[in-house]
Computed example of a mutant assay.
Amino acid sequence: MKLKNFKGEIILTITALIWGTAFVAQSMGMKYTKPFTFNGVRTVVGGIALLPVILFMSKSKGESPKTEINDNKLWIRAGIECGLALLIASSLQQVGMQYTTAGKAGFLTALYIIIVPILGLFLKKKVRMTVWLSVVIATIGTYFLSVKQGFNIGIGDIYIILCAFGFSVQIMIVDKYASLTNAVKLSCTQFFVCGISSVIIALIFEKPQFSQIMQAAAPILYAGVMSSGVAYTLQIIGQRYTEPAVASLIMSMESVYAALGGWLILNEQLTGKELFGCALVFTAIIITQIPKKGSSSRSFEKIETQQA
Rank of each mutant, 00 (worst) to 15 (best):
V116N: 12
N70E: 11
Q212R: 04
K185G: 15
V230F: 05
V230T: 04
L108E: 05
M1R: 11
W263L: 06
I153D: 02
S187Q: 13
R128N: 12
A247C: 08
S27A: 14
L260P: 00
I54M: 15
S295N: 15
I118W: 00
S211V: 14
S134D: 12
L145D: 04
N267D: 14
W75H: 13
M172K: 04
F167W: 15
V174Y: 11
T271P: 07
F122Q: 07
P117K: 05
G154F: 04
M251K: 00
K125N: 02
E206T: 13
K66E: 12
G262Y: 02
G83T: 03
C278R: 02
I153F: 00
S295V: 15
A308G: 11
G261V: 02
M253F: 07
L111H: 11
I10V: 11
I196F: 13
A78I: 05
I69P: 09
G62K: 02
K293C: 10
W263E: 03
Q306E: 15
P35A: 14
I48M: 11
L92V: 08
L87G: 02
Y257C: 01
Y99L: 07
F151A: 06
A16L: 03
V135Q: 03
V127M: 14
A25L: 00
F192E: 15
C194G: 07
L266I: 09
A49V: 10
F122Y: 12
L264V: 08
M57D: 10
R298D: 15
F276N: 12
I286F: 06
I155F: 09
L162F: 15
V24C: 03
K34A: 14
Y112K: 06
F151S: 04
M28Y: 04
I140N: 06
I303N: 05
V24Y: 01
K273V: 10
R77F: 09
K4P: 01
A231Y: 05
I286W: 02
F205R: 10
E304S: 14
G79K: 02
Q307A: 13
C194L: 12
T139W: 01
L123W: 13
R77I: 09
G261R: 00
A216N: 06
K273L: 13
L111K: 11
A49L: 03
K2N: 14
I287R: 00
G166F: 10
T15N: 14
T242N: 12
S27Y: 08
Q235M: 04
A308C: 06
V246R: 10
V24D: 06
S64V: 13
W263S: 04
F192H: 14
T181K: 05
D175W: 15
S248K: 08
T189K: 04
L249K: 01
Q26E: 09
I161M: 15
S134P: 10
I137M: 12
S228D: 06
I80L: 08
S198W: 01
G166L: 12
F300Q: 13
M214N: 08
I140C: 09
T305E: 11
I158W: 05
M226T: 00
